[in-house]
Simulated scan of single mutants.
Amino acid sequence: MRYTDAPARRDELLRRLSAEGYVSSSRVADELGVSEMTIRRDLRQLEAEGLARRVVGGASLPNLGHGRPFDERAVTGSGEKHTIAEACLQLLDGAVTVALDAGTTVAPLAGMLPAGSTIISHSVPVIQAAIARDDVELVAVGGVYQNETRSFAGSAARRTIADYSVDVAVLSATAVDRSGILCANALDAELKQELARAARTTVLLVDHSKLGARAPIRVGGLDLVDIIVTDAGADPDDLRVLREIGATVVVAGETVDALSTAGDAGVDVS
């Protein structure tokens, strides 16, 4: 079907953005029977109207309040985030190659992993922390720089990650609910998916404010990860909902239960 009428074409772009959170300029141009330049012009217009946000290769939904600056997010709930990272560390015993996602909850792990670890990351704060150590190996993943997440993304980053076999990937997210794992950046979502594919075990770190929250882009279902680690501020109802639909959730501070739960989930990084 050809969309030669601009209003109808932009309506279709908005429909796809609402359904998928992201559109690829090249793919949608082919599917709508118009040039990629035409689609880029449409996306520029939608961005000017505040209805889309152009990113490399296409467009995503506007941030809708989720895209706070990294430094602002880093100091929000920093104590809880360190507690979550420490709880995650207990689940990594035996892991040698650990991939760390971009995110303020994951970043503290770069300074906590034991000597001899190999760290793979596209996160600038993680890369900087690993460079400051002389007792870990670092695989720094490059690509298109994303200021919002202070990380690299894009096809080059995905190809690099795909070349590695990872013991454990530690992911972050903007939100988690019964539908799955959500974020606010389409390129970030692609990297999370690639990290999960590369890993034998995947752990998701989210502070309690992310449980039951919303974000525009779906990374995947809860089965994308093996364990979710959160903090003691989590609403019991949010925990109950996640556990009732099969998610393995660890609450930081419940050390014995955490290790037991990891074993029950079949997590094996030896």
Rank of each mutant, 00 (worst) to 15 (best):
Ala196Trp: 04
Ala189Glu: 10
Asp134Cys: 04
Ile161Val: 15
Ser117Pro: 04
Leu195Asp: 07
Ala184Tyr: 14
Gly220Asn: 11
Ser165Leu: 11
Val136Phe: 08
Val141Ile: 15
Asp135Leu: 06
Leu211Tyr: 05
Ala132Tyr: 00
Asn185Thr: 04
Ser155Ile: 04
Thr118His: 13
Arg200Gly: 14
Gln146Ile: 14
Asp135His: 08
Ser155Asp: 12
Leu211Phe: 05
Asp135Met: 06
Val139Arg: 13
Glu194Asp: 13
Val139Tyr: 10
Ile120Ser: 07
Ala198Val: 11
Leu195Ala: 08
Leu205Asp: 06
Leu204Pro: 08
Tyr164Gln: 13
Asp167Gly: 03
Thr230Asp: 01
Thr201Phe: 03
Asp231Asn: 11
Ser123Ile: 01
Ala199Gln: 11
Val168Ile: 11
Val141Met: 05
Leu224Asp: 02
Ala107Tyr: 00
Ser123Met: 03
Ala169Pro: 07
Ile119Val: 15
Ala153Glu: 08
Ala184His: 14
Leu113Val: 15
Val170Asn: 02
Leu191Val: 14
Gln193Cys: 09
Ile131Thr: 13
Tyr145Thr: 00
Leu191Asp: 03
Val98Phe: 02
Val206Pro: 07
Cys88Ile: 14
Ile131Ser: 03
Ala198Asp: 11
Asp223Val: 01
Ser151Glu: 06
Thr149Ala: 13
Ala199Ile: 12
Thr104Ser: 13
Val206Arg: 03
Leu224Tyr: 02
Thr97His: 04
